[in-house]
């Protein structure tokens, strides 16, 4: 690293480029509309956005798809399963009737189970992301603005939560909580399992958003528009949620859109380990878990859910990145 004048001069170039930047002029566009225009211009973001929308619509419309497709996710086609419990036909039984083939042994339709699995997965991921984001916003904004001992306590809790190993904690908590409410032979209702999962995600997931929001608020709270509100007699609620919050939407949206794919994989992982959703509820993690035993004999069973979950997570991640570029054009490139 040279510290000659060259270096000091480079610093000056950036400083000098700023006043040259054009004045936006009277174009009548809000910051949100400008970001939207930038997002529109980003091909990757738009393509992944449409894929995302497609998956979400498919998941939401699962009963409708079932109606059109004509097969329920629980229907078993034992007549199409061979004696060695593998589906008849090529590629795990792909046919005009069963688009993605059939499950070995039980002979359930993979396509419709994926559509319903999408529904489960997205429901859990989006609920968890909403909950963690909401929790993160409130705690982050309060910690950042008020500072002092409140900030110290919240920050300590954040550090504490970040230090806990999520997976071990989840493995431990799931059976404990279940045992607290249900006996060993009771049928555990699906909503309860899903609820506990969302709760687990929320318990661990809010820290990221809270940290992000806290940092942003600390840099915003000294701005003069906040002082102007205080000087006019504004209360805490007005300052936090009317003045500060609108300036936080960009990072919050980005962290939300990047949290969803995280929870999709997280949910699949927990279900894979058997502590999330269980059969017969259609779910990615459960399917992949079961398909592993057939990886040699019926690879299609592994490939279809694998590709769907891969595409889903990739689309969400790419869109999240595009959103970040659009909302904060200075962050990259």
């Amino acid at each position: 690293m040279s510290l000659s004048q060259i270096e000091t001069e480079t610093a000056g170039v950036d400083a000098a480029a700023a006043p040259v930047a054009p004045q936006p002029g009277m174009v009548g566009r809000s910051p949100g509309r400008l970001a939207w225009a930038r997002l529109r211009a980003n091909r990757t973001a738009m393509v992944s956005g449409w894929i995302m929308v497609f998956f979400v619509v498919l998941g939401l419309a699962a009963p409708l798809v079932e109606l059109v497709y004509g097969i329920s996710p629980f229907e078993q086609f034992q007549d199409k399963i061979a004696n060695n419990s593998l589906p008849l036909g090529y590629l795990g039984g792909v046919s005009g009737e069963h688009w993605f083939g059939l499950e070995p042994q039980l002979g359930r339709d993979i396509f419709i189970r994926l559509v319903y699995g999408l529904r489960t997965s997205l429901f859990i991921a989006v609920s968890a992301a909403l909950l963690t984001t909401g929790l993160g916003i409130v705690l982050g904004i309060v910690a950042g603005y008020l500072g002092g001992w409140i900030d110290a306590v919240i920050s300590w809790v954040i550090d504490f939560a970040l230090a806990l190993p999520f997976l071990i904690f989840a493995l431990a908590i799931m059976p404990t909580v279940t045992a607290r409410f249900y006996g060993p032979r009771d049928e555990i209702p699906v909503p309860f399992r899903i609820g506990v999962m969302i709760f687990l995600f929320a318990l661990f997931g809010w820290t990221g958003t809270a940290r992000l929001v806290r940092g942003q608020v600390i840099s915003l709270r000294e701005r003069e528009f906040v002082e102007a509100a205080r000087a006019s007699g504004a209360g805490l609620f007005h300052i936090l949620f009317r003045q500060l919050l609108p300036n936080l939407w960009a990072p919050i949206l980005v962290s939300f859109s990047l949290a969803v794919p995280g929870y999709i994989t997280g949910e699949a992982a927990l279900s894979f380990l058997g502590i999330g959703v269980v059969d017969p509820t259609p779910d990615f993690g459960v399917m992949i878990n079961k398909s592993l035993s057939y990886a040699q004999t019926d690879p299609a069973y592994l490939i279809f859910p694998g590709v769907v979950i891969f595409l889903l997570v990739l689309a969400f991640n790419l869109f999240g990145d595009g959103l970040r570029d659009a909302l904060d054009p200075k962050s990259s490139r």
Partner: peptide
């Protein structure tokens, strides 16, 4: 610049 909330009309 900093005395006006950028997200408000």
């Amino acid at each position: 610049y900093s005395s006006l909330n950028p997200r408000h009309t």
